[in-house]
């Protein structure tokens, strides 16, 4: 390697591959994954166009796209950002804090879903006009406050 050590903190100079093969391989993998994602997107589009779209099927396809996206993210971070070839310590200090996202996402989406349910419930109650239906709704609102 002709490059000199760039900083006194560095113990040894990391080996860099001389070929650009892994880069191009990753490019093709990413393109391939994107094409699969697109075709799933079009499948979802066609399911939606038909009569009575199957919600479970759509959800399953959407889940697949999410997994494919994570795979793409893995390749970008591991190969393009070179994290895969770094010292293990660095990999861990990047990956471990990212685990915070699990609870971050779960709690937020859960609460969002709960707002929908609450809204729908109160809208249903409000739509029924008879007076005896209004009283408990008002009471419930009071309890919530």
């Amino acid at each position: 390697m002709s490059a000199s050590i760039s900083s006194p903190e560095i113990t040894f100079h990391p080996e860099h591959e001389d070929t650009t093969k892994p880069i191009w391989r990753t490019f093709w993998i990413l393109s391939f994954l994107t094409i699969i994602e697109l075709s799933i997107g079009l499948i979802i589009y066609n399911i939606h166009k038909g009569e009575n779209p199957n919600a479970t099927l759509v959800l399953a396809f959407k889940g697949m796209v999410c997994i494919l996206t994570l795979a793409k993210a893995y390749y970008i971070v591991a190969v393009f950002m070179h994290l895969g070839s770094e010292v293990r310590n660095l990999i861990m200090t990047i990956i471990v804090p990212l685990c915070l996202f699990i609870w971050f996402i779960a709690a937020f989406l859960w609460d969002g879903n709960s707002w929908k349910n609450l809204r729908n419930r109160y809208n249903r109650i409000n739509e029924k006009t008879p007076t005896e239906q209004v009283a408990p709704a008002a009471k419930e609102k009071g309890a919530k406050d």
Partner: peptide, 22 residues
């Protein structure tokens, strides 16, 4: 510190079941 933020929101309209985790 990162996992408990919603305990500031128990009575502001947070889902009570979610609140129990917090």
């Amino acid at each position: 510190a990162f996992l408990v933020w919603a305990h500031h929101m128990f009575v502001t309209g947070l889902n009570p079941f979610l609140g129990s985790f917090f």
